[in-house]
Design a protein around this nucleic acid. Sequence first.
DNA 1: CGCTAGCTTGATGTATCTCAAGCTCCGTGG
DNA 2: CCACGGAGCTTGAGATACATCAAGCTAGCG
Lengths: 248, 248
Amino acid sequence: MPELMSRRRARLNEARCQTCSLSSLCLPLALELDDMSQFDAIIRRRAPLKKGEPLFRQGDRFTSVFAVRSGSLKQLTTEGSGTDQLTNFYLPSELVGLDGIDEQHYPGSVVALETTTVCEIPFDRLDLLSEELPELRGQLYRSMSKELRDDRRMMRLLSRKTADQRLATFLITLSERFRRRGYSPYSFRLSMARADIGNYLGLAVETVSRILSRFQSQGVVAVSGREVNILDMPMLLTLAEEEIEDAS
Amino acid sequence: MPELMSRRRARLNEARCQTCSLSSLCLPLALELDDMSQFDAIIRRRAPLKKGEPLFRQGDRFTSVFAVRSGSLKQLTTEGSGTDQLTNFYLPSELVGLDGIDEQHYPGSVVALETTTVCEIPFDRLDLLSEELPELRGQLYRSMSKELRDDRRMMRLLSRKTADQRLATFLITLSERFRRRGYSPYSFRLSMARADIGNYLGLAVETVSRILSRFQSQGVVAVSGREVNILDMPMLLTLAEEEIEDAS
DNA sequence: CGCTAGCTTGATGTATCTCAAGCTCCGTGG
DNA sequence: CCACGGAGCTTGAGATACATCAAGCTAGCG
């Protein structure tokens, strides 16, 4: 079965960091080719996750961090009897699970929003390798530091911004993340449900829906189901920072 | 002036990690004595900060992280023309500035809430030393990871909890932090103003004041200015997670 | 001992939640 | 291929938690 062989080979090849299209965004971005193969050697490939399937669950023993290869995921934490809190969405090249290092357990579940593939990076191996490769260590520090900064932004959003500003900020942030990954920043598909967006932004689903409708009627975006087109980015940017006085 | 000499010696001695009372909580907690002196050697002592004095300002070039030795600080980020957002309070043994690694600039100002001393740890030296000392590296990863986890909790608080729950959670968290540092978990002094608490918790000052008054009239705490006594910790814990139906 | 920043308390306003109902679209099975 | 079912989404009306505005109070500092 030579065809199967070559297909398998192709898949493995695609799965190597050296040829991965995300290499300029992902953890090994700062590595020389030699070092990258060292890094590549510790990575475990995983079968793709189906929509709704968990990568790991809250409380699972922490063993690895994961780099998203394709698809997207959401992170959920449950506390007490309460409802879930959605604390993050993860897109390709982003690192999942860093908040589990400290207590050796994942503090939240991470679930695929669509068919998703990840690279598993056993943390003990990563730590050892980071001893030898200063660039890798630096990148790991930077990844965590960036996540800290993003968290602070999120806190600001949750404690000071109006619902309109939250939605606008959310769309801009997504747009920017798509742009960095080589996709259109103006036209994309949301992989998450409205309920997820609401949960993430600290808003009721109804509020999310209403505001998206209003943005649409204002000609800022065109939304059809989960397809989003940003029509007036400057306006969206304005909406994200300051409430516009109704000038009608 | 032998007296001055010995006082200076005493101060320097006090300032060494090996004899620091925080060593079991601080960054070098996992180090052997030999390794600790290596770590100690890269630390820069700083003159104490007075109340209101900034340790660094938003946008300053990132050079060091800081371990709080005594006192306390708050972290503020300003965005656009908007008001400040208070994103963190720092107590002794906690590490300040980790969110600056990524962009090589501090993303927020950090200001002393009272007379405060810190240990400055130049990050490039720390990074190099973390190559040699796996325990130090691990502790650094854990510190950042813990901060990520705390941030997620804060997001949950900001997006799902009522004002009562926020205040109760705030008091419990402070209490716990004092307890870990060997102080009374039931009786302590707030180093921050009501306005800071409100800013941090996403509430108006008036709301903070009102709720503290109510907690007091319910016999849960006794508050006098910035002195806090927790009278009914179980009740406070209950208040923090679920709204109590008024059983009058 | 007075001044001012910080704090408290009251009255009113409003952004967003909650409850309720209908709609739409996607996947599934006939 | 179409019809059905149901999850996900939208829209409306009413309720509410908290913000805002407005005063007076208190205490720590010069």
